[in-house]
């Protein structure tokens, strides 16, 4: 054993091997993740207020109108393909929760034109709940929207507790509203 080879002690070797295996494992996990998915930075924080003109008439819709309720906020647009996929689900959810007083669903038409949005609703069926217009996308930026569709869930205290990116399913909406339904009954 020369002095030089004693440099590479068993400790160094095992640490090296362990680090290598950890790296490979991490890369494996990374394969199944979507690198472009950004988790919401506002979970647990107060939702930003908004006051937008409604899509259906000339009135306004504001978040504080729904203070004390469980709110689902869905960002959609006529140019968004995946929004078509979830449209039927949202309409159904709107009907299902129409008679639950402490649950409210709101749509936000993001970076869209009124005529195109209305045409979209005419073709696919109107939402049984109101939508506000966000033509510049400012409200979207306030919520940290980076792609459509995105759905936010707000509790009666006004804090965001869940965000879903992509087309949402009915079970996911029901699961998010589970505490609301428990309280209601």
């Amino acid at each position: 054993m020369t002095p030089l080879s004693s440099f590479y002690s068993p400790l160094l070797k095992s640490v090296g091997l362990a680090a290598m295996l950890a790296l490979l494992f991490m890369l494996y996990i990374g394969l199944w993740r979507d690198p472009s998915h950004i988790p919401s930075a506002q979970i647990g924080h107060m939702a930003q207020t908004f006051n937008l003109s409604k899509l259906s008439d000339d009135n306004f819709i504001a978040l504080e109108d729904y203070k004390g309720k469980w709110v689902m906020l869905n960002f959609w647009a006529s140019w968004c393909g995946a929004c078509r996929t979830e449209h039927a689900t949202l309409v159904q959810a709107g009907k299902d929760f129409a008679n639950t007083p402490n649950i409210a669903l709101i749509g936000i038409n993001y970076k869209d034109q009124k005529e195109k949005a209305l045409r979209f609703l005419k073709r696919l069926g109107a939402f049984p709940y109101p939508s506000g217009q966000d033509p510049r996308g400012r409200t979207g930026i306030d919520y940290g929207v980076y792609g459509l569709p995105e759905t936010y869930f707000i509790n009666p205290e006004g804090k965001i507790f869940f965000r879903h990116v992509g087309a949402i399913k009915l079970e996911q909406i029901k699961k998010a509203f589970a505490p609301a339904l428990k309280g209601a009954s």
């Binding site: 950004i38 988790p39 919401s40 930075a41 506002q42 924080h45 930003q48 930026i141 306030d142 940290g144």
Partner: peptide, 8 residues
């Protein structure tokens, strides 16, 4: 922007 989009 950090409040809205996080450290990212």
């Amino acid at each position: 922007f950090q409040q809205r989009y996080g450290n990212y």
